[in-house]
Structures are given as structure tokens and as C-alpha cells.
Design a protein around this nucleic acid. Sequence first.
DNA 1: TTGCATTGAGAACGGTCGTTCTCTAGTGTC
DNA 2: GACACTAGAGAACGACCGTTCTCAATGCAA
Lengths: 190, 190
Amino acid sequence: MQAILGYAAFMDDEEARTRLLDAAEALFYAEGIQAVGMDRIRTESGVPLKRLYKVFPAKEALVAAYLDRRDRRWTASLRGAVAEAADPVGAVFAWLAAWFSEPDFRGCAFLNAYGELGTGPAAVLDVVRRHKAELQELLAEAAGAGREDLADQLLILVEGATVVAALTPGPAPAHNAAAAAATLMRAAGA
Amino acid sequence: MQAILGYAAFMDDEEARTRLLDAAEALFYAEGIQAVGMDRIRTESGVPLKRLYKVFPAKEALVAAYLDRRDRRWTASLRGAVAEAADPVGAVFAWLAAWFSEPDFRGCAFLNAYGELGTGPAAVLDVVRRHKAELQELLAEAAGAGREDLADQLLILVEGATVVAALTPGPAPAHNAAAAAATLMRAAGA
DNA sequence: TTGCATTGAGAACGGTCGTTCTCTAGTGTC
DNA sequence: GACACTAGAGAACGACCGTTCTCAATGCAA
């Protein structure tokens, strides 16, 4: 914040961007993208409409930025939890259990966006695909080299647990998936 | 069709209902619920707007009826495939592989609806929960009595395979999930 | 034939949403 | 101090959507 710039001292474009993404993420994730209008985001963020459209020229850009930022944070958090673990695969499901237990958990934001905007803007679908590709790569590393089939199965377990948890909140699906993953790894000789 | 009733000879309420549900299912599943307006359904079905609102008093009723009919058909088809199989669990994933290979496959209609309308009309959420409960019950029967944990894991595999297939079409996720299921069943002593 | 109810076709209404415009007020520069 | 510039606040616009209404045409009953 550069106090010399007058108005911008109270809120420059960078802070406006952060506030807008914070509001967008909270509202879009909780209520869906189409259900939240730009006025809601304006009210919730405190950013004037004019600046909103200066930072994000259209709603589609805001949606793409929301998914992009969430993807980076989500993946970095999971990757951090896995990196420092002795049992990487177990760490994935422990991380999932904690995620599913968050009070405002509402499933995978990217799958929700896909279900809502599947045939819509290509930029959104791109972020969804990228998110899943990153998850797949992370699981391939956790499974160990030369275990592509196991990694594919782990991906199915992670996605399945997330979907089940979305409808029946709580960590139980993560625990069930963790047990399944342990069995599969044992069978794979890992 | 009772030809005596004049106009109704060409299309009575029952036929209108069928046509509307056919159009609604094709459009809602392919493009999303909010993305399809009532005028599209009117055009695609050939049912006049007045009769549309006579049969379904509001869009919400049409959406609920669409999900309800799809649930009945989907569950009956899967149940039929499982009932006549020597290996019920294997039959589930074989059925999934065929489903994933359909050219217009776009993931689970109920999860898509949930992601889109999660906080919306309660009637929709009810159908989604009912659909998943039926699937859970079917898998519990396939897993065999006294294997609740295995059934929970199978549910995760089915949901996970469906989600992965939605983003990367083709039967591969079903085959991967089938292999995982076989491993889990072997480990469970089934 | 003469009303009467019902239908189809589509215009119209009220509301919402994404986006732009207007107007006012404050800021920096000469 | 005059002036170009920018920002904020919110009204306004145009499009769309779910729903209702109008009106002429039709079938049926007496």
C-alpha cells in the first residue's frame, strides 16, 4: 500500500484483487458460480464495481482466477503435507480427512464448477483439467516410480472419497479410502 | 391416446410429460440445468408452453421429475445387470465401463445437479441423496452380508471412477476400479 | 347455430444479471 | 487557484429467464 497515491492508499489494485478473490472464493464455493451475482461480490468484498471491472474485465475472468488461485493453494498444501511424511500415500488420506472435516466443506470446487459450466467457457475447463493432472502427478510420485496402475487407483480413491464426503460430511470416507489404499499397496508389493 | 378427446388425440398430458422429460433429460444432462431455459425445452419437445406449465407447474418440478426418472432407469438397469451375474461386483464395473463409453457420457447427472444447485431447492437434493443411498444398498448386496466396510470402499471406487471418467472419457477408469475392487475383495476373503 | 370451455401460439410482464454510464468529489500539476 | 484526471457511488441499460396473459381458433353441448 503506497500512501502517497491518495485513494490508492486505501485500496490499490493488488489489494482489491485479493479482496475480490477472497469474496469470490467464499461465495462461489459455498453457493455455486451461477447463483452468485457480481453485486454480491461487490458488496461482500467492499470493492467498488468500477474497480472490480478494472481488475477483472468480466465475470469469466474472475471465475478463472478464483479456480486458479484455489488450485495453487490446494495443491501446495497437499504437496507440503505429503513431502514431509514418511508414508506419502497415508499422508494424502490424512490430509483429506482433515479437509472433509472443515465445517464449510462442500466437495471439490473444480468438479462443482465442471458440473455447472461443463460446456461453458473453455478457460474454466482448462483449470479443472490442470487441477486433476496435478493431483494425478502428485499421486504418481507418492505411489513410487513404476506403479502407474496403483497411482490410477489412488486417484479413483481420492476422487471417490471426496464425492462421497460431499454428500455425507465427515472424515469417514477418507478413512475408508485410506484402508483401501493400504490394501492395494500391500497387494502391489509396496 | 384417446382419439375421442380432440386435441388430446394428438398429445395428451401423459405423452406431453414423456416428451418434456425426454427433452429435459437430454438438455439438462448435456448442458446443465441453469444453462437450459424453459423455451429451449418447449422448442425441443414440441409441447406448448401452456401445457408444459399444466404438467409441471414450475421448472423445479421438471428438474425433480427429470432426476427422479433418470434415477429409476439408471438404478433398474444396473440392478438388472447385477442380478443375473455370477460375479455381482465384477458386473457393476462392467456395466460402468459400458456407461462410460457412451458418446454423450458426461459424468453423474446427480452429482452435476448437486454441484450446480447444492444450496437450492430441497427436492433436488432429496433425489440426489436417494440415488446415492440406492447405489450404496445395491453395492452392499453385491459385496455380501457382513461386509459393510468393503461395500463402503466399493462405493468410493464407483464414484471415483465415474468422476475420473467424466474428465477423461472412456472405459479405462472402470477397468482400473474393477481391478482395485478385485484386490479388495480378495483381501477381504470374499 | 349458438354459446362455452379448452387449446395453441406467442406476446408480455416482472425480476435478475452482467456490464456500462453518469455525476459528483477529491487529487496532483502548473 | 484553474484544470485535467481519476475514483467512488449507484443509477441505468440491454439481455435473458421463468411465468402469466391475450386472443383467435377449435371442439363440444344444447
